[in-house]
Amino acid sequence: MLRFILSKFMFMLLSLFLLVSATFLLMNAIPGSPLQSEKATSEAVQKNLEAYYGLDKPLYVQYGTYLKNLLQGDMGISMKKKFQSVDKMIANSFGPSLRLGLTAVVTSVVVGCVLGMIAAMHHRKLLDNLAMIIAVIGMAIPSLVMAPLMQYYLAFKWGIFEVAGLDKPMDYVLPTIALASGPIAFIARLLRSTMIEVLNADFIKTAKSKGLSGYVIVVRHALRNSMLPVVTYLGYLTAGIITGSVVIEKIFAIPGIGKYFVQSVIDRDYPLIMGITIFYAVILMVTRFLADVAYVLVDPRMRAGGKGAK
């Protein structure tokens, strides 16, 4: 098991290193230099600027410097927002994104599991159909449709929520629904199909014959054994929430990283693009790694030292 975790960890580092290198190369492959501008600058000034930013050095030296700085958490300075360091910008905008993202992740897992559980317990009955209709709707309506519609009706027309911003607890409701509806649907369907299988297993029959009540069986015995696919999904869920939040932050005017990311791409603010890319990649890969570890911890077969199955 330790070997499995270690190999996953090395794998994560390797992927991260490759992504950082690819980002660096891509950004350098783009023609033009950040120091070019419409204003004519003299040769000497240009040289000085290049020397100041280290752009006169060969590429591998620049790469080395970049890696060294990155390890110390220094991601350079933004080109558009003068004299702001990228790491500061990320740190400042991370708060709202993190709070919204965590809310959405927790909501997805809790609501998704509850829906899936209800559906599995009432297999092929009214509640099952109802839960699956909700799931299909949640899958079909993409966040970039759902968010504006909710904003229009629930906030603008009926005034139940604020149209934009993320200040009061109530402000979290709409963005969270928009972000979580897809994952809720996915988790509900995932859990439902695993749990239907688990509910037919022998140990459930044993629990029933002991006289345990339906809810105790489902929550204590079936749920734990049905959670594996959901745990695996957690890594991808984080990716989905981060992706989604880019759109949601734009629609609800939330000052988070997603908004900066889009803006940085439109502005061609290379250090900021690289910084946020790497930042996102670290979060995603770490969550994926943690999901792998959690999987090993939850699944007794893996704990016994079995080889990691693909």
Partner: peptide, 19 residues
């Protein structure tokens, strides 16, 4: 394939759109 897969999809897309 696994290495490529572990790089988040959105990031690849956006990086390419920059280039």
């Amino acid at each position: 394939a696994e290495i490529l897969y572990s790089i988040p999809y959105l990031l690849v897309v956006i990086l390419l759109l920059v280039v």
